[in-house]
Design a protein around this nucleic acid. Sequence first.
DNA 1: AGCTCGACCTGCACGC
DNA 2: TGCGTGCAGGTCGAGC
Length: 297
Amino acid sequence: MPELPEVETVLRGLRPAMEGRTIEDVRLSGKHLRFPYPPRFKSRLRGHRVVRMHRRAKYLLAELESSEVLIMHLGMSGRFTVHSDAGAAHNLGEFYFEQGATHAGDGPHDHVVLDLSDGVRLVYTDPRRFGIMDLCPAESLGAHKLMRNIGVEPLGNGLNAEHLHLAFAGKRTPLKAVLLDQRIIAGLGNIYVCEALHRSGLSPKRLAGTLAAHRKPDIRLERLVLSIRAILAEAIEAGGSTLRDYVGANGASGEFQQRFAVYDREDTDCPKGDCGGKIRRIVQSGRSTFYCPRCQR
DNA sequence: AGCTCGACCTGCACGC
DNA sequence: TGCGTGCAGGTCGAGC
């Protein structure tokens, strides 16, 4: 689930649950996530209030009153659920999830359970355990190993044709790989790279450098920027509703209502309609790429 | 300095 | 029904 739009949606759900509340207790499953937890993980969380929640790329950041930051990444299969006593439910707004905090967090893949003030419980569930939890002093967050090489936020001002022009110049790497590179644009994943390339009519196999061959930014880079922005914005809209639905169904329904134009649609007609192409699946740097060979050049 | 690819995990859908 | 295979929304870090 987690590319930028999903992480952004999770952030919006976590805010009303976490901001202003104190972490009263921490329970871990005993299994490590992608990396070992940092030293004294539990005691560095316990007793501290969450001041503010942020997102950077696909990382969720909880700024603590202790001047440390809790860094969280959902990996491939990470999920958060918020549970609460009836009394706290009304504070959690539209992202309020599930009633009853008492037995939540006992599932086989529930690896981190945070008991917050007001009877709110946050459970991090992650079957594949590719997720990350780390702690870092706020003042050195930018120098953190996981943070320091992250590129521009695609929804911010940093993403523009000039930026891509500079980043693509001389690169003999396919567009697909370059757009997945978090050092250039932060937050795109396999699905939205496929979708953005389709919308902008660019082939995932095209070498990035071919779009930066002239002195001035190529018009196609402008189109790519607009496509990336539009796709992410739409997905954040839809992601919100999918998450609400997912949770409303008590975790049983994981179905995506969202219809992708190309992702996971091999052999179907290209939705662009007039091009008459069929969606193909190829493998690039070990991962599936879906695209229309007719209208993506 | 840059790039590709293996490794980290579990679950699920598929074909035999 | 059971088993083997391949695939999955990410990305670090080893090795060229």
